[in-house]
Computed example of a mutant assay.
Amino acid sequence: MTENKTKATDASVGDYIASRAQAQQGNDCHALMALLEKLTGQSAKMWGPSIVGYGSYSYTYDSGRSGEAPLTGFAIRGRDLVLYLSVDSEEQQALLTRLGKHKMGKSCLYFKQLADLDSFVLEQLIAGSITELRQRYG
């Protein structure tokens, strides 16, 4: 099996944000950092070259592939910010409908700026995601 490319590193989160974020993105990144630290009780850590992650969990898929990933985190992707979430439950799906202007992939929530999102709903989504992952993977 191939080794996972995305793993925790000692790279500087501040340097990553300074080098990638446009003005408003930088402000939003710092606000996200405060929220994610509050919800996970963990400090930010770079995962690979471009994910700011919080906490971690170990997983093993039915295929046998296993690894470690952050409980939640975010990345700067061009003009978008991406928040990594588990939104499998009906409750999580219902929250997405009230979140605001975003696009959702399998586990990637894309948005332009935090001002486009309902902050209360966002906090509930992140907390629900952390709970889902901890229940699923321990």
Rank of each mutant, 00 (worst) to 15 (best):
T2I: 10
T2S: 15
T2L: 14
E3M: 15
E3A: 15
E3W: 07
N4D: 14
T6E: 11
A11T: 07
A11Q: 13
V13F: 06
D15Q: 11
D15I: 03
Y16K: 03
Y16P: 01
I17G: 06
I17P: 01
I17S: 00
I17E: 01
A18H: 08
A18V: 05
S19I: 00
R20E: 05
R20Y: 02
A21S: 03
Q22V: 04
Q22R: 12
Q24L: 09
Q25M: 02
Q25W: 03
Q25A: 05
G26F: 00
D28Y: 03
C29N: 02
C29A: 04
A31E: 13
A31G: 02
A31C: 02
L32N: 02
M33P: 00
M33Y: 00
M33G: 07
L35P: 06
E37L: 02
E37V: 03
E37A: 14
L39H: 13
T40G: 09
G41Q: 11
Q42A: 15
A44M: 05
M46P: 04
W47H: 08
W47Y: 13
W47R: 08
G48R: 05
G48E: 10
P49Y: 05
S50W: 09
I51T: 11
V52P: 08
V52Q: 04
G53F: 06
Y54K: 08
Y54N: 07
Y54A: 06
G55A: 04
G55P: 06
Y57T: 13
S58C: 06
T60E: 14
Y61A: 14
D62C: 03
S63A: 12
S66N: 10
E68F: 04
G73L: 09
R77K: 15
G78H: 00
D80M: 11
D80R: 10
L81T: 02
L81W: 08
L81M: 11
L81F: 07
L81Q: 00
V82T: 09
L83W: 06
L83K: 09
Y84K: 04
L85D: 12
L85S: 11
L85V: 14
S89P: 05
S89L: 11
E91R: 12
E91P: 01
E91A: 15
Q92W: 00
Q92K: 07
Q93N: 04
A94G: 02
L95Y: 06
L96M: 08
R98Q: 15
L99V: 11
L99K: 07
G100D: 02
G100Q: 00
K101N: 12
K101E: 12
H102A: 06
H102G: 08
H102S: 07
M104T: 07
S107P: 01
F111N: 04
F111H: 01
Q113H: 12
L114T: 05
A115L: 08
A115T: 10
D116E: 14
L117E: 04
D118L: 07
S119Q: 15
F120C: 03
F120L: 13
V121T: 14
L122R: 09
L122P: 04
Q124S: 10
L125A: 09
L125P: 04
I126K: 09
A127H: 09
G128T: 08
S129T: 05
T131C: 03
E132Q: 13
L133F: 01
R134K: 15
R134L: 12
Y137T: 01
Y137V: 03
G138Q: 14
